[in-house]
Design a protein around this nucleic acid. Structure first.
Length: 477
RNA sequence: GCUUCCAUAGCUCAGCUGGUUAGAGCAUCUGACUGUUAAUCAGAGGGUCCAAGGUUCAAGUCCUUGUGGGAGCGCCA
């Protein structure tokens, strides 16, 4: 007999048919009713075991966490709470689970506790929902770009370029750290290393994506990214996944349109395909927030918040406009901000971004035209010579979700900008070649995938939306 | 890296200005019940009070240091 997934049984309801299901027991009530989950859906299939005819020793082995293979007939449920259930004819315990030792028992567990047993947390309703949604979001991203004719580029994970300037890098080496070869100057001799040079894990695939875009027109990368920064927050990881589209013959406005369209596409896809999981996570949030005071609770339930982000156009404004709003804001005048905005040119802190998104506009915001001093060298210099064509998309609750820009396509301007930032030209010749030969206006952005998953699931700690989070001091599992 | 809070049973927590045998709910186990669904009822077991020092007649409680965790900030996606 072919195994059916629980999702198929619950969707198709093959009443009267004998089927085979496999999965793990969530609870076993009354020595009679087992809730079986196989990860295909957040829902469980109720297995009704005949306790008169089933061996008592076998009944004792049907415990929370046990792996089960059960054959029986699907019938309309006699009880409330589910429409169909299985009358079990034959049940086998494939893998036992000692209830005295198994850490997941049918009760609420804290996210902090589950983080410590990340190898088992897939088995909880919350995390199975999160990772199904994570999958759906990843799939939707590929689908979105594919429909628009983008080419998926695999940018290198090990990079020999050390001028990307996006943060501290992890070194990659096969040198014996107990006996490091030195050159004549007494420095590490990387000529003896695996690649004959110093190499690192990538902090961004953007520069490589630009190379692709200047031939294939529209490309994107979607891969792991590594930052060796000592960041200890609920929004940062040392290893995370990033999506970096790059579009040729395009300006900053095309870039903003693309980012907004993509975010909306992914959110809609998840809403259309993960309804049960979203409903569960929404209820989870409501229950969690019951303990909080009214003013700290979310203004909208999860699904309403997502729908709101689909209907609304994101508020687009310049850095200069944002500074004016902030300078005239109540918290700024009453010096409630930790960093009071006093003049144009100030870097925006997260408290300022949060004010704009959560208090002032109450919807996603796209900020453009930042002062050139506070942004990267490759961003296109505007005609005012003071600002660059950068854009950041800010989301309620999680802050910056997208950072992008129109790229500086003019060779001379780019070279002078690199000089300003002390970036050695000789290491970037390959990058400058794109400006020497057939350069054209182009733009792109980086989307933090985990931050998107946080937003869509309503989770508030980034360590709960990636299976095995890496952060300073921790690379477990 | 900085600021701040926390660490007591398998889990979530209570434990008052330091005072005799450290508690509850859930989970687990035993029994009863049997169409349950946070099952119910009765009972039982379960503790290096994070670690090491210190103060004190007396420390789960106070102090110091360390370790682990949360939240916020910075860096960013």
């Amino acid at each position: 007999m072919k195994r059916l997934k629980v999702l198929d049984v619950l969707t198709n309801q093959p009443i009267g048919e004998e089927v085979l299901v496999c999965g793990w027991i969530r609870t076993f009530r009354n020595n009679q009713f087992a809730a079986l989950n196989d990860g295909s859906t957040i829902k469980t299939l109720q297995l009704v075991v005949d306790r008169e005819t089933t061996d008592e020793a076998l009944l004792k082995r049907i415990t929370t966490g046990a792996a089960i293979r059960a054959a029986g007939t699907i019938v309309e449920s006699q009880g409330r709470g589910q429409s169909v259930e299985m009358h079990v004819r034959d049940i086998k315990v494939v893998g036992d689970s000692d209830p005295e030792k198994y850490p997941l028992q049918p009760k609420r567990h804290s996210l902090e506790f589950l983080r410590e047993i990340a190898h088992l947390r897939f088995r909880t309703s919350t995390f199975s929902a999160i990772f199904r949604i994570r999958h759906a979001a990843a799939f939707a991203i590929h689908e979105f770009f594919n429909k628009r004719g983008f080419v998926y580029i695999h940018s290198p994970i090990i990079t020999g370029s050390d001028a990307e300037g996006a943060g501290e890098m992890f070194q990659v080496t096969t040198l014996d750290l107990d006996n490091v070869p030195k050159n004549e100057e007494g420095k590490v001799d990387f000529k003896k290393d695996f690649f004959n040079k110093a190499t690192n894990l990538t902090v961004s695939g953007q520069l490589e994506a630009e190379l692709g875009a200047l031939a294939l027109s529209d490309v994107y990368t979607f891969g792991p990214t590594f930052r060796a920064e000592n960041s200890n927050t609920s929004r940062h990881l040392a290893e995370f996944w990033m999506i970096e589209p790059e579009i040729a013959f395009a300006d900053i406005h095309d870039d903003m349109d693309l980012a907004e369209d993509m975010l909306k596409y992914v959110i809609k896809y998840v809403m259309d395909n993960c309804g049960d999981d979203l409903e569960f996570l929404e209820q989870r949030l409501v229950n969690e927030e019951k303990q909080k005071p009214q003013n700290e609770r979310s203004p909208m339930p999860l699904r309403e918040k997502l729908a709101f982000c689909l209907e609304e156009d994101y508020e687009r404004l310049t850095y200069t406009e944002a500074i004016n709003i902030l300078m005239n804001s109540k918290p700024n005048k009453k010096k409630k901000f930790q960093f009071v905005i006093e003049e144009w040119g100030a870097d925006l802190q997260s408290e300022h971004e949060r004010y704009l998104v959560e208090k002032h506009f109450k919807k996603p915001v796209i900020l453009t035209g930042y002062p050139k001093e506070i942004k990267a060298f490759y961003m296109r210099l505007n005609d005012d010579d003071k600002t660059v064509a950068a854009m950041d998309i800010l989301f309620p609750g999680i802050g910056e979700i997208v950072g992008g820009s129109q790229r500086e396509e003019r060779l001379d301007v780019l070279q002078s900008r690199m000089k300003d930032f002390d970036i050695p030209e000789h290491e970037m010749e390959w990058f400058l070649d794109t400006r020497r030969f057939g350069t054209c206006p182009h733009a792109g952005f980086g989307l933090g995938f985990e931050r998107l998953v946080m937003f869509v699931t309503g989770m508030t700690n980034i360590r709960d939306v990636i299976p095995f989070p890496r952060f300073p001091g921790s690379a477990e599992f």
